[in-house]
Nucleic acid binder design. Structure first.
Length: 343
DNA sequence: AGCTAGGGCAAATTTACGTCA
DNA sequence: ATTGACGTAAATTTGCCCTAG
């Protein structure tokens, strides 16, 4: 059995999962389990990641160019997962609502565009590190769907509610920046969290500009945004691990049941062999499993007046096993046979 | 090629906050 | 109203990897 570890890699549902589910429903189990490890595993593993299409493959240096299976069976669909590979400089990822919000809207008094009006925050945060470079504004940018959703979501709440909530978080952050003494831990407001969550759905990692833009947008320190994304990735991985664990448990149970069933069958066959010795008079049949093609060759030896006659037929293992039931047979492992052409 | 500094990330851990009995 | 336990999220620490100089 091959276990390929690949936690939460692909953003799409797994075809493999459907397959294994089907198999399980039939009371059998596919002997190929992949359990994902999307965050490239432990830190002590040398790793490299590369994006191929919308797929991300994890390559560990200790394994040469061997790739971990990219088809894990159970995927908790929590991940956006199209992170920027380390090996290449982060391309400008699309954050449509960000790019818009960073550009002063013509006719907009606050200059922050639509959506979260962070200018309502009384405390200005130290954003001198924010690069006001032109890269942040895209000529093709449009109002993002999230921004629309964000506004809709807040519609039921009063302006005062939002102000109070976000002010609490941001003012605490600003206080910390200012006095620099004891750093109080702040809870992000629901709006800030939701915004970060939406960003995370777009991209689970941020390049520096996106980080700064998000920080500015939410009136947080860039470090806070960075930490939030780190923790979010950790949470996602934890959840995925739990899901994988559950899946493996079920696999284990199924395999145990199958093992019991086979043991029982074996016992029955043995009992049959001892209770009905007349079967021994039948010509002995040798089942030979070819390790490469997994075909079973049955060799029947019979004696006649002129000598021993041996015939060999090749069939697939399932058929051979079903034929062999109720019949005395010998199993000879590792006997190579000449592959006969199959029609 | 080897070295170093800087940055980013994962993992582990700590700490502060919010909730509930 | 207070308190302690507990869960969770924010923040910190540590160590590794990668890249640029």
């Amino acid at each position: 059995m091959e276990l390929a570890l690949s936690l939460g890699d692909a953003p799409k549902p797994f075809a493999f999962l459907d397959k294994t589910t089907k198999l399980s429903n039939n009371g059998t189990l596919g002997f190929c389990m992949g359990v994902g490890s999307g965050f490239s595993g432990r830190s002590d593993e040398k790793r490299d990641t590369r994006e191929i299409g919308d797929r991300r493959e994890v390559i560990r240096s200790g394994e040469g160019d061997k790739k971990i299976s990219s088809d894990p069976p159970v995927q908790l669909d929590l991940l956006p997962f199209s992170p920027v590979p380390r090996s290449q400089p982060p391309a400008q990822l699309r954050f449509p609502w960000l790019t818009d919000n960073l550009v002063s809207e013509p006719g907009s008094s606050d200059g922050m565009g639509r959506g979260l009006d962070v200018n309502r925050f009384p405390m200005a945060i130290a954003m001198d590190e924010v690069d006001d470079g032109a890269d942040l504004s895209s000529p093709n940018s449009t109002v993002s769907s999230f921004q629309m959703d964000f506004s809709v979501r807040n519609r039921g709440r009063t302006k005062r509610d939002l102000d109070v909530e976000t002010e609490r978080a941001s003012s605490r952050a600003s206080d910390d920046d200012e006095n620099g003494s004891t750093r109080k831990k702040l809870r992000l407001s629901k709006e800030q969290s939701a915004f970060l969550e939406e960003s995370f759905k777009e991209h689970s990692t941020l390049n520096p500009k996106q980080k700064l833009a998000l920080a500015k947008q939410l009136n947080l320190r860039p470090r806070q945004v960075e930490v939030w994304f780190q923790n979010r990735r950790a949470r996602t991985k934890l959840k995925q691990t739990e899901v994988d664990c559950e899946y493996l448990k079920r696999c284990c149970e199924t395999l145990t049941q199958e093992n019991r069933r086979l043991q029982k069958e074996l016992q029955e066959l043995r009992a049959l062999k001892t209770s009905q010795p007349f079967y021994m008079q039948l010509p002995a049949t040798t089942l030979t499993m070819c390790p490469s093609c997994e075909r079973v060759a049955t060799t029947t030896s019979s004696s006649n007046a002129t000598g021993t006659n041996t015939t060999t037929t090749t069939t697939n293992s399932a058929a051979a096993l079903s034929l062999s039931k109720g019949r005395v047979y010998q199993v000879q492992p590792h006997m190579h046979h000449a592959h006969q052409p199959t029609s």
